[in-house]
């Protein structure tokens, strides 16, 4: 029974179930083919297309761990995409590696600056995260629109397009980018003490301050990370479409990212976080998305399914449903001991 108690058991089980249902409903779902030394198929598409959401959700995990939230990630994506493509558009040689490098670096730096701004509002001015980032969420798309002059800038640049659609060895480049990001963030959080200190700040900010934790810096770091990752996500998104669309780039991605983080078992109340959980959460969201497409549902109607998933997941996490579950279990004679958790909560 120990494996069932692991915090990643249920998120992983949900993902596996979803994949199995998909495969049963349509055996083509799981089909992967090798062409010219490159893998194709639905699972590969999921790995490739999940890159922007994965990066954003990774940053969101850190921010949520500090008890915060970053609503501005979609807007940051729009800005960074707009910056990258506008630079390419203005450069003399959009297809040159040099101009692409400049475009990417500047776009990511813009994401960093916006992350610094969010972190400043939250950690220095002490503004509620939801509002502090709402400011940029509102204003950011406006800024992106100004950068692109209100048009959808389209650019031709083979090296830039390679970022989202190219292949390294047999797998998509975008996949390698997010794997690298996951590894770097994991190492940074778990091989140093950053992860534990972040959790401490998220669980009890005042106790952490009195224990000497530099919580301002830690919270700030989380928003900066989120900004940088959203900046990279914006670059990848723009590379995929090769068009800077200030309105649709990263649209609703903050909500999908939050959903992915919660699906991965990290509580929105902050504290304990799981990067592996977030990876599973993002995969679940992507699998659900492609399942919906596969079933022939118009993409526009997909949100109904997401609503259903959100509701099911939060109900499964709810203590009230747990206690129902226990009483049903008892009725069925399953050996689950009833506990008095509800009561304990009141007592605490």
């Amino acid at each position: 029974m120990k494996i069932v108690k692991h915090r990643l058991f249920w998120p992983a089980a949900a993902l596996v179930t979803l994949l199995i249902i998909n495969t049963i409903a349509n055996p083509n779902f799981a089909r992967v083919t090798l062409q010219d030394g490159q893998l194709y198929g639905n699972p590969i598409n999921i790995l490739r297309e999940s890159a922007p959401l994965m990066l954003v959700a990774l940053g969101m995990t850190l921010v949520i761990a500090t008890r915060g939230i970053d609503l501005s990630v979609g807007a940051i994506m729009a800005v960074s995409g707009a910056v990258a493509l506008t630079i390419l558009d203005a450069s003399e040689n959009p297809g040159g590696l040099g101009s692409v490098a400049v475009a990417v670096v500047v776009a990511v730096l813009v994401g960093l600056v916006l992350g610094v701004w969010n972190g400043f509002l939250v950690s220095v001015l002490g503004i509620q995260p939801i509002i502090a980032t709402l400011v940029l969420m509102l204003a950011g798309r406006g800024v992106a629109l100004l950068i692109t002059g209100g048009f959808i800038t389209t650019v031709n640049s083979a090296p830039y397009k390679f970022i989202a659609t190219g292949y390294l060895v047999v797998l998509p480049v975008a996949f390698f980018i997010w794997v690298a990001a996951v590894v770097i963030v994991s190492v940074l959080e778990r091989r140093t003490a950053l992860g534990m200190l972040t959790e401490a700040v998220g669980i009890n900010p005042e106790a952490s301050r009195l224990a000497g934790v530099r919580s301002r810096g830690i919270i700030w770091t989380a928003y900066i990370a989120s900004g940088v990752l959203a900046g990279i996500a914006g670059v990848i998104f723009a590379s995929n479409t090769m068009a800077a669309d200030a309105n649709s780039a990263g649209y609703l991605i903050e909500l999908y990212a939050i959903l992915a983080v919660v699906l991965g078992g990290t509580s929105l109340m902050g504290g304990k976080f799981s990067i592996a959980g977030t990876v599973i959460g993002v995969m679940t969201v992507q699998a659900l998305n492609s399942a919906i497409l596969f079933l022939g549902v118009p993409p526009a109607q997909a949100p109904v399914f997401f609503a259903a998933v959100v509701i099911i997941v939060v109900l499964l996490q709810s203590p009230r449903v747990h206690s129902y579950g226990r009483s049903v279990g008892q009725l069925l004679g399953v050996g689950v001991k009833p506990t008095r958790e509800d009561k304990k909560e009141v007592a605490a």
Binding site: T192, A193, I203, S208, A211, G212
Partner: peptide
């Protein structure tokens, strides 16, 4: 409110002071 970090383990709570003093780069 100002002492324990409830969801962290006993061990993590114990080392929180030294860890904070050293900074996150020196786990």
């Amino acid at each position: 409110a100002e002492g324990v970090v409830a969801d962290l383990t006993v061990a993590e709570n114990m080392i929180l002071g030294i860890q904070a003093r050293r900074g996150w780069l020196h786990p």
